[in-house]
Amino acid sequence: MHGEYKMPGGKLVVIDLELHGDRLAKVQLSGDFFLEPDGALDLINRALEGQPAAATEAELARAIAGPLDSDVMMYGISPEAIAVAVRRALHKESAA
């Protein structure tokens, strides 16, 4: 599944994922944003792994923000923007 979201005033957020049962799996975040430190990308992907497919944008954003240390810098992206991209990917699947 594939979802995209252009954050207003920000950058393009792209999510590719699969569903295993009713849970997110093989989540890969990409786009034209910047994250520091580089390891933050892996933290975000892991935070989304196993989340319920029925999770709301707010629930997904909290799951993403939770493991991120205060030193993580997100340029042109936010947990909320990532959550929108995830929901878009899932919505495309349910609409098919």
Rank of each mutant, 00 (worst) to 15 (best):
M1I: 10
H2Y: 15
H2E: 15
H2I: 10
H2G: 08
G3D: 09
E4L: 14
Y5L: 05
Y5K: 02
M7R: 15
M7C: 07
P8T: 06
P8H: 04
G9T: 10
G9H: 10
G9M: 06
G10K: 06
G10C: 07
K11M: 12
K11C: 06
L12I: 09
V14W: 04
V14A: 03
V14Q: 13
D16M: 07
L17Q: 04
L17C: 10
L17H: 00
E18G: 05
E18N: 12
L19V: 14
L19S: 03
H20P: 08
H20V: 09
D22V: 04
D22K: 14
D22F: 13
R23A: 14
R23P: 01
R23M: 09
L24I: 11
K26H: 08
V27A: 04
V27H: 01
Q28N: 13
L29Q: 00
S30Q: 01
S30C: 03
G31E: 01
F34Y: 11
L35E: 00
L35N: 01
E36T: 13
P37K: 08
P37T: 14
P37Q: 11
D38S: 11
G39Q: 14
L41A: 12
L41R: 13
D42M: 11
L43T: 15
L43P: 04
N45C: 13
N45A: 13
N45Q: 15
R46N: 12
E49G: 06
G50M: 06
G50S: 12
A53H: 11
A53K: 13
A53Y: 04
A54R: 10
A54C: 11
A55D: 00
T56S: 15
A58T: 06
A58R: 06
A58K: 04
A61G: 03
A61C: 05
R62Y: 06
I64T: 07
I64L: 10
I64E: 02
I64A: 08
A65K: 15
G66I: 04
G66W: 07
G66T: 11
P67L: 05
P67N: 06
L68Q: 02
L68S: 04
D69P: 10
S70A: 15
S70C: 11
D71R: 07
D71N: 14
V72S: 00
V72T: 13
M73A: 15
M73G: 11
M74A: 07
M74N: 03
Y75G: 14
Y75C: 08
S78H: 00
P79V: 05
P79F: 12
P79N: 15
E80I: 05
E80H: 13
A81L: 03
I82C: 09
A83I: 08
A83N: 01
A83T: 01
A83S: 08
V84T: 15
A85Y: 01
A85R: 00
A85D: 01
A85T: 02
V86I: 12
R87P: 11
R87A: 13
R88M: 05
R88P: 02
A89S: 05
A89I: 03
L90Q: 03
H91N: 09
H91I: 12
K92M: 07
E93V: 06
E93I: 08
S94I: 11
S94W: 14
S94H: 03
A95S: 10
